[in-house]
């Protein structure tokens, strides 16, 4: 009994690996990743040229560091979004989904496998791009390394959250709308919601509206790059943990909803 149970567990992990392996190969074969790498490569070349010419002052170096890290953040998230948004719709269009599900592979496992694979690919891209955006810039001022580590952790959660949301929405809306919508949420969502939350007056209706805006994922909360380059200190343990829980909660809810919708979807 326990041997067969262990076999089932191994079988499940193997299924997830098979699904993930396909995602990794696809990401490497497509041009998106290499385009992002070229763009950040151009940035790195620019930094080397500027370093040779000479950086006037610490404020300029700070600007370059912020630009590099922000570029890495943006490119990694867009790459993850493009990868996640096409996973299920493309497999359904090309009908490669059915042979996979014909195996003893549960739909939830397939969905979870896709999420894990895209998240891991996105994180790998994020770490590489972040390193390329952070390392070459000369640091002429003090930057807190503890905050940098917090940034890496929170951006990992951000990538996972983005993947879960993109996969969920790929089951509901067309791919292009999914990409546009989440891109806008990624770039402007935080500012717009922050603006709305600041402007609400203290009436019951506006306070309820303010409450409901908190259900919209805010990626800017997990992006501490400007805080880092501004020379502000790291987050307290409680705040850091709360942010991780914030991201994890959205991930779990999106995965539950997505799994449920995918399970009930007629293919």
């Amino acid at each position: 009994m326990s041997a067969s149970f262990d076999y089932m567990k191994v079988g499940r992990w193997r299924s997830l690996f098979i699904v993930g392996h396909g995602v990794f190969l696809e990401m490497l074969r497509r041009k998106d990743f290499y385009v992002m790498l070229i763009l950040i490569g151009l940035f790195v070349m620019g930094i080397f040229v500027i370093s040779v010419v000479g950086i006037d002052n610490a404020a300029t170096a700070n600007l370059l560091l912020n630009l590099g890290m922000s570029l890495a953040w943006f490119l990694a998230h867009i790459l993850t979004l493009l990868t996640a948004a096409r996973q299920i719709p493309v497999e359904m269009e090309t009908k490669t989904l059915y042979p996979l599900l014909a195996r003893p592979l549960a739909r939830e496992d397939y969905y979870l496998g896709k999420w894990m694979a895209v998240t891991i690919s996105g994180c790998a891209a994020l770490y590489l791009l972040l390193l390329l955006g952070w390392l070459p810039v000369p640091r002429l001022e003090f930057y807190d390394n503890r905050l940098f580590l917090q940034i890496v952790v929170l951006l990992t959660v951000s990538i996972a959250m983005l993947t879960a949301l993109a996969l969920l929405l790929s089951l509901i809306i067309p791919r292009s709308i999914n990409v546009v919508f989440i891109s806008l949420l990624l770039v402007f969502g935080g500012s717009l919601m922050g603006f709305f939350q600041e402007q609400t007056r203290r009436t019951f209706v506006t306070q309820m509206l303010k409450w409901f805006t908190a259900y919209i994922p805010d990626f800017s909360r997990l992006n501490l790059i400007t805080r880092y380059t501004d020379g502000i200190g790291p987050l307290s343990g409680m705040e850091f943990f709360a942010l991780i829980c914030y991201g994890v909660l959205f991930i779990v809810i999106a995965l539950f909803l997505g799994g449920y919708l995918f399970r009930r979807r007629s293919l």
Binding site: R221, T229, D230, G231, I232, E239
Partner: peptide, 12 residues
């Protein structure tokens, strides 16, 4: 939860 809500900083 507003980790980017701080005063001061080099940007400003």
């Amino acid at each position: 939860l507003r980790p980017n809500d701080y005063t001061g900083g080099r940007t400003r």
